[in-house]
Nucleic acid binder design. Structure first.
Length: 425
DNA sequence: TCTGGGGTCCTAGGACCC
DNA sequence: TCTGGGGTCCTAGGACCC
């Protein structure tokens, strides 16, 4: 039986989130920047039309921003995360099963409907999300995930922006696929495109009709699956909604170079503490902690990057334990005299949190474990209520001069009572 | 002056074993 | 010139995604 899969993708998600709360920006060019206001990470259609590419370094495009009055924003992930939750909640009643694939897109299994009703169903989804959240979405409908992705690609290329496309209803699918570079296929990146092109496989249509044995020889197994999916054979099922994460990372570029061990150590402690918070939120514990540091990779002459892993004596999400491990790792990494530009903490070998449960051979008593767990819960609650970093460890530093800059950030409209929008008559 | 951050999966190759 | 043949497990690094 063929599935009816939909891919629902928020249009220019971060830019659209900003617009919801500043409607006067409708039809104006809007760009959202990365941390430290470094690169462009989201663009409204108007900004795209100005030729501002994804990932563009902001300083190189300052002229264009200024000439065309591009409205710039620092990233407001608190807002985007909350808006994403609202979008996903709106989608759920329309679907039999859903896989939230990223902050701005979800795959969904649609109920069994006659094919001629697919597009109107997609339109209904689209109107509901727009009405409930103010976010415009596009909907691609197809028998496989890969084809649903292709549908979204085709939507982008058609001038009549209806926002919904059911692949099965397309009269000239092959002709359209022949006009699409193989690079546009989900899972085919830079390197795989080069390999395929060497075999003369240049368009999506070429890949769809390629000799699968040949494809298998030059691509890993997922490349093979992708080719099958283009032919309507579903190989990539919807994954479980609550699949536990396998690693947690927190890393940042610094607003300016960091030279001293003291400052670097503060930053790494702060990242470890953020990572630990994420871990507790997911009810997980980590067994391995890795610290990595890097100097400015755009100044190749002094580029230095290194990583050090520490195996924790017991799987934990208790911040002080992770801070100690991070310090130990950093001792091995730090070389004086360098200008560090970025650092991070990666937690892996995750397990389900069984805190409160005393470990068989450990010296820590049940009572002590319970107190540790309570302490973390209290800190998390304070930070949840009053904003990240309100309660923190001294090791994270007080001044934090390396802290990223977000000079153009919009308010936390939906998650902080103090920043809620006010309507004036 | 100024160039993001957070993930997953796969594979090749080394170490080790019989 | 020939240099056994399977296995397993682990890790680093590559490739991809948004």
């Amino acid at each position: 039986m063929t599935l009816v899969l939909a891919l629902i993708d928020c249009d220019n998600f971060y830019a659209s989130c900003e617009r919801v709360f500043q409607p006067r920006l409708e039809s104006q060019p809007v760009a959202v920047l990365s941390n430290n206001d470094g690169c462009v990470i989201a663009r409204s259609n108007e900004a795209k039309a100005l030729g501002i590419p994804m990932g563009a370094p902001a300083f190189q495009y300052r002229g264009i921003f200024w000439r065309h009055g591009v409205k710039l924003f620092s990233p407001n992930f608190e807002l985007y995360g909350d808006m994403s939750d609202r979008v996903m909640a709106t989608l759920r009643p329309f679907t039999e099963q859903m896989e939230i694939y990223s902050i701005d897109e979800a795959f969904a299994l649609l109920p069994g409907l006659p094919e001629e009703e697919h597009e109107s169903y997609g339109q209904a989804i689209r109107s509901a999300v727009l009405k409930h959240t103010g976010i415009p979405v596009s909907v691609g409908i197809a028998p496989t995930k890969t084809l649903a992705k292709i549908a979204l690609e085709l939507i982008k290329q058609t001038p009549a922006k209806t926002g919904v496309l059911a692949i099965g209803r397309l009269p000239n699918l092959d002709a359209q696929l022949a006009g699409l570079s193989v690079r546009k296929v989900w899972g085919i990146g830079h390197a795989f495109t080069a390999r395929l092109e060497r075999l003369g496989i240049r368009t999506v249509q070429d890949l769809k009709h390629a000799d699968l044995r040949q494809v298998r020889r030059i691509l890993p197994v997922n490349g093979f699956r992708t080719a099958m999916e283009l032919n309507g054979r579903s190989c990539l099922p919807l994954t479980a909604l609550d699949a536990p994460c396998k690693s947690v990372i927190c890393s940042r570029s610094f607003s300016r170079a960091v030279r001293t061990f003291g400052e670097l150590s503060e930053a790494v402690a702060a990242f470890a503490a953020r990572a630990a918070e994420k871990l507790r939120k997911e009810h997980r514990t980590a067994t391995i902690l890795q610290v990595f540091v890097e100097t400015n990779r755009f100044k190749e002459r002094d580029w230095y990057a290194n990583v050090k892993a520490v195996v924790l004596p017991r799987s934990t999400n208790y911040t002080p334990d992770l801070l100690a491990a991070a310090q130990e790792a950093l001792q091995h990494l730090f070389i004086p005299g360098r200008n560090y530009k970025r650092a991070g903490v990666l937690l892996s070998e995750l397990q389900n949190d069984s805190s409160g449960q005393p470990d068989l051979f450990g010296e820590t008593s049940a009572g002590a474990l319970e107190r540790r767990s309570q302490l973390m819960k209290t800190m998390d609650a304070i930070n949840q209520r009053y904003g990240q970093g309100t309660a923190r460890f001294l090791a994270e530093g007080t001044v934090q001069p390396w802290r990223m800059k977000r000079l153009l950030k919009s308010p936390a409209y939906t998650t902080q009572l103090a920043e809620i929008p006010v309507a004036r008559c």
